[in-house]
């Protein structure tokens, strides 16, 4: 997580320095309010980050990816769809919830800077990538056989994450890493549970949910199972990925194409 934040911030700053026109920073869903935010430059984002870390980081995490009680803010916003809406929430909070606004004495300027920082965490600016997204789409459906497990816009398999908006939550280098070394960072949702029932039979599948007393999984035949832990003989968590590495199966150029395609799968295009 820390590595990610260290990497992302310089990259974003570099990107932002290339695109100073406010409208270019935030494509759709917030353009109508973007004109109101006059603080969208590189330094504004950096200042916004500073205010965010001081005022918001305790709940939302130092890099906005979620923390003690506050949701992840790097994958879209639940309660605002415009910059004006974000401004209002940052300033005033969300009524009847734990989300309180930043200090009322904060200036409009510093609040807009926080808005710019939050937008930078969800930046969807196009970047020049070496790969060809159209070729990548063909690989996804064909040689890569990705669609057998992954769904995109309603088409595909169920045994991997839905990738319809993966470009919003993963950067290109992270996507490449996901493809080449899938075991490096496996979301617990995609661990495997191996459950030995009292009769000795084994049920194995993707870990959909687990809590103190129970667990739920989907097996290879896409059957859903729910177990009480006290009713099984034993269970194991396998924390490696069920996805094979593309290394050896695809060329470097093909991996680039696939990354370009995956990065193109973003909210505004869905």
């Amino acid at each position: 997580m820390s590595m990610r934040s260290l990497w992302v911030t310089p990259m974003l700053l570099a990107l932002l320095s290339l695109t100073t026109a406010p409208a270019a920073l935030h494509a759709q869903p917030r353009e109508e309010a973007t004109a109101d935010n006059l603080f969208t430059g590189t330094l504004d984002v950096r200042m916004g980050q500073r205010v965010f870390q001081q005022q918001c980081g305790r709940c939302h995490g130092n890099d906005g990816s979620g923390g003690e009680g506050g949701p992840d803010l790097t994958n879209g916003f639940r309660s605002a769809s415009t910059d004006a809406g974000l401004f209002k929430i940052v300033r005033e909070g969300i009524p009847n919830t734990q989300m309180v606004g930043i200090s009322r004495r904060s200036t409009d300027q510093s609040t807009w800077m926080v808005v710019s920082y939050l937008n930078s965490l969800n930046d969807t600016t196009d970047v020049d990538l070496p790969g060809n997204a159209t070729n990548g789409q063909q690989l996804f459906a064909g040689k890569g056989n990705c669609g057998s497990c992954h769904m995109v816009n309603g088409d595909g398999g169920r045994r991997g994450p839905d990738l319809s908006q993966v470009g919003n939550r993963r950067k290109p280098d992270e996507l490449a890493s996901d493809l080449r070394t899938p075991d490096e960072e496996v979301d617990p949702r995609w661990w495997t549970l191996r459950v030995t029932q009292v009769d000795g039979s084994l049920v194995e599948g993707l870990r959909m949910n687990e809590d103190t007393f129970s667990m739920r999984l989907m097996d290879d035949n896409e059957n859903l199972w729910s177990f009480s832990k006290s009713d099984v003989r034993s269970f194991d968590r396998v924390k490696s990925s069920t996805m094979p590495s593309v290394d050896g199966a695809l060329t470097d150029a093909e991996v680039d194409d696939l990354v370009a395609y995956l990065f193109s799968l973003r909210r505004e295009e869905s």
Binding site: M1, S5, Q54, R58, N62, G67, S103, R105
Partner: peptide, 11 residues
Amino acid sequence: GDQFTGGGGQR
């Protein structure tokens, strides 16, 4: 009146 924490934590 402002937060005065001098850093933060991240899981």
